[in-house]
Amino acid sequence: MRDCSWILQSPDDFGNIRPDNFTCSSDRTSHLPCWGYNCIAWAAGKTDKWWWPVEGDPCAFWPIPIDPIDPVTLEQFIKAFESEGFSVCRNSRFENGFEKVAIYADSNHEPTHAARLLSSGLWTSKMGRGEDIEHKTLHVVEGKRYGTAAAFLKRPNPSCQKPSQLKKLVSHLKGFLRT
């Protein structure tokens, strides 16, 4: 089922979203075991687990050992993304050859959401157990539900590696033709 109208009908939670600044880009996942995947998994490029640091919960996956004292902090979420090849960066601006993610946090600095920057320059977010959306800016999903974008990370974009390999091949072919 794909129907993102519920987001527009939640102005208290998503005060910045409008029909012209986002598009619905997937079906919802609420019918899947453990509701499929969430925004954190989606930001890391995964769609097989619900990523959240909860010890002993078969419906929760976390890529690093869970901090027993304070697992839900920006620091821990940054470490989780670092384990996926990301490193902290200064801003959310598009950089050629890099994939960026933004981690949102509420007023208590507790992580709530994550979004990923696409090569199109749009951001993609998985909305809870609902649909994936593409939104023009990070601000679009900021508000009462997700708070604000609080940390940014980047990693070399795997899809950008292909042109360089192609360049290598072309260079080899040129060399071969010369000989």
Binding site: W50, W52, T112
Partner: peptide
């Protein structure tokens, strides 16, 4: 009320 949430902390 938790449909849009990703945080299991808040969901639970």
């Amino acid at each position: 009320e938790t449909f849009a949430l990703s945080s299991l902390t808040k969901i639970y």
